[in-house]
């Protein structure tokens, strides 16, 4: 229960920050991606601001035996840069460019523009479901063909 409370607090602070920064506005995000047009650099400042607490947090993390409110750290350990990582990033980037929305602002906007945000979020969940459905069949075969099979 305490863990769910901390997760809710983290999510609320995240959503508050996205809203305060202006990154909940899809046109502003597309403006950042529009480097050959009317470029809006705001997202660089958002990323820079977010780096400060996280650089500190990553310095503190190895000194803790366990997280403050959990038994152990569960952090990603993958190191390989493979076709899945690159292909996924390319597809995600296309979707990000089409609407100016990534998962965080999409979910955050449910409070601000419910109907349009819900259209995006439902499609996003469908995309995730499609990945889950295909990942056991199609992707291992494609990876084998491309020589990027992780086994």
């Amino acid at each position: 229960m305490k863990q769910i409370g901390i997760a809710l607090l983290s999510g609320a602070l995240f959503g508050a920050g996205l809203t305060y920064s202006g990154m909940t506005d899809p046109a502003k995000v597309r403006g950042f991606l529009d480097v050959f047009g009317a470029w809006n650099p705001a997202l660089i400042f958002v990323m820079g601001g977010a780096m400060l607490p996280m650089l500190l947090a990553w310095r503190l993390q190895p000194r803790l035996n366990a997280p403050l409110a959990s038994e152990r750290f569960s952090l990603p350990g993958a190191r390989r840069i493979d076709g899945k990582l690159l292909g996924g990033a390319v597809l995600f980037g296309i979707g990000w460019g089409v609407a100016g929305l990534c998962p965080g602002p999409g979910l955050t906007d449910l409070a601000l523009a419910p109907r349009r945000a819900a259209t995006f979020v439902l499609a996003m969940l469908a995309g995730m479901a499609l990945f889950r459905f295909t990942s056991r069949q199609i992707i291992p075969q494609a990876a084998k063909m491309l020589g990027t099979d992780e086994g």
Binding site: G88, G93, V98, A99, P103, T119, M128, F131
Partner: peptide
């Protein structure tokens, strides 16, 4: 929004 959502959902899971 639908096309973007599908690509974002699939792409973020794959990547």
């Amino acid at each position: 929004l639908v096309v973007a959502g599908l690509l974002v959902g699939f792409g973020t899971r794959l990547g």
